[in-house]
Design a protein around this nucleic acid. Sequence first.
DNA 1: TTGTAAGCGTTATCAT
DNA 2: ATGATAACGCTTACAA
Lengths: 323, 323
Amino acid sequence: MSGPTRAPTLADVAASAGVSLSTASLTFSGNKPVSATTRERVLAAAAELGYSGPNPLARNLRQGRSGVVGIAVGQLSTAFRDPAALAMLDAVSEVLGAAGLGLLLMSDDDDHARLPLDAVIYDICGRETWAAYADLVARDVPLVVVEGPAWPGSTYIDIEHRVGSAALAEHLHALGHRDVATVTLAASHPQREREAGLRDVFPHARVLGACESDVAAVQSLVAHHLDDRGPVTAIVCQSDVQAAGVVLEARRRGLRVPEDLSVAGFDGVATPWLDLELTTVVQPLADKGHATAEAVLGRIAGADVSDVLLPVALRVGDSTAPA
Amino acid sequence: MSGPTRAPTLADVAASAGVSLSTASLTFSGNKPVSATTRERVLAAAAELGYSGPNPLARNLRQGRSGVVGIAVGQLSTAFRDPAALAMLDAVSEVLGAAGLGLLLMSDDDDHARLPLDAVIYDICGRETWAAYADLVARDVPLVVVEGPAWPGSTYIDIEHRVGSAALAEHLHALGHRDVATVTLAASHPQREREAGLRDVFPHARVLGACESDVAAVQSLVAHHLDDRGPVTAIVCQSDVQAAGVVLEARRRGLRVPEDLSVAGFDGVATPWLDLELTTVVQPLADKGHATAEAVLGRIAGADVSDVLLPVALRVGDSTAPA
DNA sequence: TTGTAAGCGTTATCAT
DNA sequence: ATGATAACGCTTACAA
């Protein structure tokens, strides 16, 4: 029979159905009405030829859009190890998916300049520079930054870091704590804001060190601090995962939480493998994701999009107690 | 002074540099040599006009490729809650990124038929049907299936489920266990294989129930089984996360692991928040990801790609002991 | 090494 | 409701 024939195109379908190219196009796009009988003929011809719908690549060029939104999250395995990041991602994906947009993961190092992106979400808390930034700006790709640097031209989604951190600090102060230490993130806007909030109440809070939101990382970080700790009675962390690591390491070293040591987190995610409820600052992760995605949609549509600042709430759990 | 001028194209650059369109193209693609002086002129013109490189959409259409590979992982937050999935994803992303390909997340429900995908990875263990499958086949999109159904036309990446499961079962048998129960995954190829391996040794192993790889889920699943358990002395799980959940729930109910109950997992991932090392079946997650990505590259290149079956290894930890 | 020209497969505009 | 036609911006034979 026939050799390796090329895939049928819309033109083939149109010809086979005896209609014009534009009518065939409208049959599939539905952008303008097409009579029922014509549609029948076109679809029949398509089925017969094995035409699987308009070529996305061609449509993309014509429309100037790819339907793909990039999301920069740094190293995948570390970024997504934190449930907070996943909750956010879920919300983003939900909104973008409903709009027919796909979500493309951008590692920090890769060269994504050649990929067709309609917009990019920058969600790498703890980084202040980004190789791809200049390129994206040059290409006029809308950029939505989550808790990152307030780069020119980008839309900015953030939460009330300082307010939440200060509320937590006040809670500890009210419990009688005076000697407080903190585990930090890498130098970044959220970290600076949160530390400022902490120092609003405890100006001399000691910094134990910085690490990612990773149980093992925080355990090794605080390991010796718990031995030769000075008079520290509470440790404030920048994520619930960090806080869980501190709790576990404290117990390993014979300290009871919260009796001997109060521990606080940030985020408000579930930690079912911990047998206590963390005192933490709950951030609206789903709202943050939705707001981010909505900002992306707005920017893609060319609308004026304003920055978003979301509130947080202190949640007192079982990991903090009187000093 | 000019109004909202449209973005410059390669043709503008070529004209401004006084060279032909093809020469300008070659300057950027490097696909054929261009004299140094010519390149200079082109790049200078590009810089002057603010040309940010060839339009990816146009190149995609011309080349018939988008540079985007889809990966179907089901619900994002649940899929990535398991560190095993992340390790795999990392390896995939590493190889594809090096090849200049982007990775697009495909939720199960969304309609991704309109997205330009060069290939798709199906990595949803525990699902046997997929709405998008027929469409991808119709569009001739290469499909690489990881531990999923052996769909016609797809390349198949898998591990030695049954062998590993049987080795684990023999380990338990050698420890004197005779009354074994198991926590399963949703009905699927891996689940069937692993259960077969278990029953090679314990034909009458009891099924406690199925759940995802989620600590909270498994805890509630096994909660009452640990109370009114018959003579069960060991529980075999289908992931280390499941196993961790069983350990925690067992302890919560006053059972010591491994003295009163042996618990085994699958995967071989780190569980730093558990104070014992799980006995488990270690699968080569990075290899699996690399093999998957390599298969994708091969399929995109139109090569003949063979299926891959990777070995696993029993690792005896502290969560199993004599019955 | 550089230029000419032919598409890639659509969608959108404008008539009819 | 349908048809003719012009882009969309680039890459790549092929020619010179």
